[in-house]
Design a protein around this nucleic acid. Structure first.
Lengths: 120, 120
DNA sequence: CAGGATCCTTTTTGATACTG
DNA sequence: CAGTATCAAAAAGGATCCTG
């Protein structure tokens, strides 16, 4: 079995890492970790995403095998998204990073203020 | 104490998360987790970064209080970077994501192939 | 060696209007 | 409702040349 290494330029794991760290991916995973959700529900919880970008994010996640998309051709339409088993293995790692951001935001903000203060 | 939530548009933790998921940040953290390193060493291990972008990444990390920068005004100059205590708390979470990317790259690649195959 | 300064290309993200 | 299509803006990233 090949060993993947993100430090290597040509390693495919880089494109995987890239997607995981897309702007909205960690948030979408956070929302879907609570269970399946409809497009509009996701959009409502992830403040600030536009429909277009959310669609792109979900499409990319679907392509990578992280979520499933179930559409019902009713009127109005209803589309449900759900994490796949693979996607679920991502919940913990991404939650850790997201949680780090929330729990250390204060310290980072202070560090920035200090840095910007030292006008050197 | 305020509660930070990345799902909220105006929450400062979003900009923190944004930086953590910058293209090169997880890789730089991975390299520095082995101990302090010089600019050139980091650049050598993180394949593909240009000096300009690596400088920007390190500067941003320094501003956020994640690394320290120690310059020696010798000729040629020597600059060492090292994770701060705060930066060190980031090693595990980021390593988990990076590790996920490496360990599931194969599955993701397969999922992509399947998706692209289904030309629907 | 470690960068700063410029210029430029690519990638992402967003605003808006429209549709099955 | 859940998108798509277009257009525009911004941001990130990169190539190249220069310097203490």
């Amino acid at each position: 079995m090949p060993s993947f290494d993100v430090l290597q330029a040509a390693c495919p794991s880089r494109s995987v890492l890239r997607h995981l760290t897309d702007r909205w991916t960690p948030m979408v995973v956070a929302v879907l970790s609570d269970g399946p959700a409809r497009f509009g529900q996701i959009r409502g919880r992830v403040e600030g995403v536009t429909a277009k970008v959310l669609t792109e994010t979900l499409r990319s996640m679907e392509r990578d095998g992280l979520v499933t998309r179930t559409a019902q051709a009713t009127m109005p339409p209803r589309v449900d998204y759900e994490l796949t088993p693979l996607g679920r293995t991502l919940v913990t790692p991404l939650a850790a990073v997201r949680s780090w951001a929330e729990q250390h935001a204060e310290q980072v903000l202070e560090a920035r203020a200090r840095y910007d203060d030292t006008v050197d």
